[in-house]
Design a protein around this nucleic acid. Structure first.
Lengths: 215, 215
DNA sequence: AGACAATTCAAATGAACATTTAAAACCACA
DNA sequence: TGTGGTTTTAAATGTTCATTTGAATTGTCT
C-alpha cells in the first residue's frame, strides 16, 4: 500500500546527485560515487529514478528551483533599467560563485552547455531562457526599441551574458582571477566592473544607433 | 633500417584526430572513429603515438601552429591600441568560426577548458597564454598604466576575452546567433559590435580611474 | 505472529572502449 | 629470390561502468 512518499533514500540520492553533477559533467559523475556519498546502494538510482539520465533531469530541475529561490532575478517592472542591470549581474555572479546549494544549477548548466551530446538540447531550453528574455526586454527598453529581438539588442545581451558566464566556463581563467584575496571582495569588484563596462557599451550602442556623437 | 619518416598513415591519423577532437571532447572522440576517418586500423594510434593521450597532445600542438599560421595575432608594436584591439577581436572570432583547419585549435581548446580532468591543466598553460599577455599589454597602454597586471587592466581583459569566446563555449547561444543569414556577415557584425562595446567599456574605466567625467 | 509489499543489498550481466598481440603483408636490398 | 625489418590487420584482452537480478531485510497492517 502506498502510504506516503518514500523520502529518505530517494531524497539523499537526489541531493548527492546535485552536488556531484555540479562538480563534474554527466559522463564523469559516476553512479557509484553519487550513491556512496548518499550512503545508498548503487541500485537505488535505478530503483527510484529509472536511470542515471532520469536522475540527471530531476536533479537539474530541482537545482533550478533551488537557485531561483535562493538568488531570484529582480523584478524588472519595479526598477530603472540601469539599476536592474546592476542587480541582474550581481545575481548571475552570486549564482556562479556561491559555494552552497544555490550554485549547483549554474554549474550543472555550464557542463550541459559545453556538452555536445543531444540529450542536453532540450534540457537547456526548458530552464535557462527566462533570464535571457528579461535581459533582452530591459536592454530593449534602454534602447527605446520596441523589439527585444533586434540585432543591436541581441548583441548587447550577448556581451552582458558572456561577461557574466565566462568564468563559469573557463576553469583556468577562474583560478587566475580568484587566486588569493577575499572571495567576497573579488565578486563585488567583478560585479561592479561588468556593470559599468556593460552600461558604457550599451550607451555607446544607443548613441551610435541615434547617429549622434556621445558628447 | 630507418630510411625516412613514415609519413603516410601517421599523418592521416594525426589530421583525422585534429578534425575529430575539434568536434568532440577527448572522452567522446573514439579511437575507432579517428582511425575509420583516416582509413587506418585501430592499432595505428598506439603504434605511431603510443596512446590516445599522446595523440591528443600532438594533435593539439599541431593545430596550434596551424592556427597561428592561418590567423596570426597582429603585431602590437606597429599599431594604435584601438586598431590593434579591433584586429585582435577579428582574429579571435575568425579562429572560432572558420570551418576549415584554422578553427581546429580553438575548438579543441574550448573542450579542454571546460574539462575538469587534470590532464588539461598544463595543456592550456603551454598554448593559450600568449594572446592574453599581448591583450593585457595593449589595454595597459590604453590606460597609461605601466602595470599589465593591475586590477583594472585584468578586468577589462576578462571582459574582452569573454565576449570573444562565449559563443565558442555555448552551443545553444551559438546556434541562436547563427541561425539563418550569412555566416560571414554575422561574423563581421559580431566583430564590430564586440570592438565598439569593449572600447566604450575600456574608456569608461579610464575616465573613472582618472576621476574625471567622460564629457 | 504472519502475510505482503516496499526497500536494500551484493553479485552478475553485458556493453563500450583503449590497448595488446601475433600473424600476415609489404618493402628494401643482397 | 630470400632475408630482415617495418607496417597493417583482425581478433583477443582487460577495464570501467550502468543496469539487472534475485535473495535478504524491513516495515506495515490484521
Amino acid at each position: 500500500m502506498i502510504h506516503d512518499e518514500s523520502k529518505d533514500t530517494r531524497q539523499r540520492v537526489l541531493e548527492s546527485a546535485m552536488a556531484v553533477l555540479a562538480e563534474k559533467p554527466f559522463r564523469d559523475a559516476k553512479v557509484a560515487e553519487i550513491c556512496r556519498r548518499a550512503g545508498a546502494n548503487v541500485a537505488s538510482v535505478n530503483y527510484y529514478f529509472g536511470s542515471k539520465e532520469q536522475l540527471y533531469k530531476e536533479a537539474l530541475a530541482h537545482a533550478h528551483t533551488l537557485t531561483e529561490q535562493i538568488f531570484p532575478v529582480p523584478d524588472m517592472n519595479r526598477m530603472e533599467p540601469e539599476t536592474w542591470l546592476a542587480e541582474f549581474v550581481a545575481v548571475m555572479i552570486d549564482r556562479i560563485f556561491c559555494d552552497n546549494e544555490g550554485g549547483w544549477f549554474s554549474r550543472m548548466l555550464f557542463h550541459a552547455m559545453s556538452d555536445p551530446s543531444p540529450m542536453f538540447r532540450e534540457v537547456i531550453q526548458t530552464t535557462h531562457l527566462n533570464e535571457i528574455q528579461m535581459l533582452k526586454q530591459v536592454v530593449a527598453r534602454m534602447f527605446h526599441d520596441p523589439d527585444p529581438e533586434s540585432v543591436q539588442v541581441r548583441l548587447c545581451v550577448l556581451s552582458v551574458m558572456s561577461q557574466c558566464m565566462f568564468l563559469g566556463y573557463n576553469r583556468a581563467a577562474r583560478q587566475a582571477h580568484f587566486s588569493g584575496g577575499d572571495q567576497k571582495t573579488r565578486c563585488r569588484m567583478l560585479v561592479e566592473h561588468i556593470t559599468s563596462f556593460s552600461l558604457a557599451g550599451i550607451r555607446a550602442g544607443i548613441a551610435h544607433s541615434n547617429g549622434a556623437s556621445p558628447c
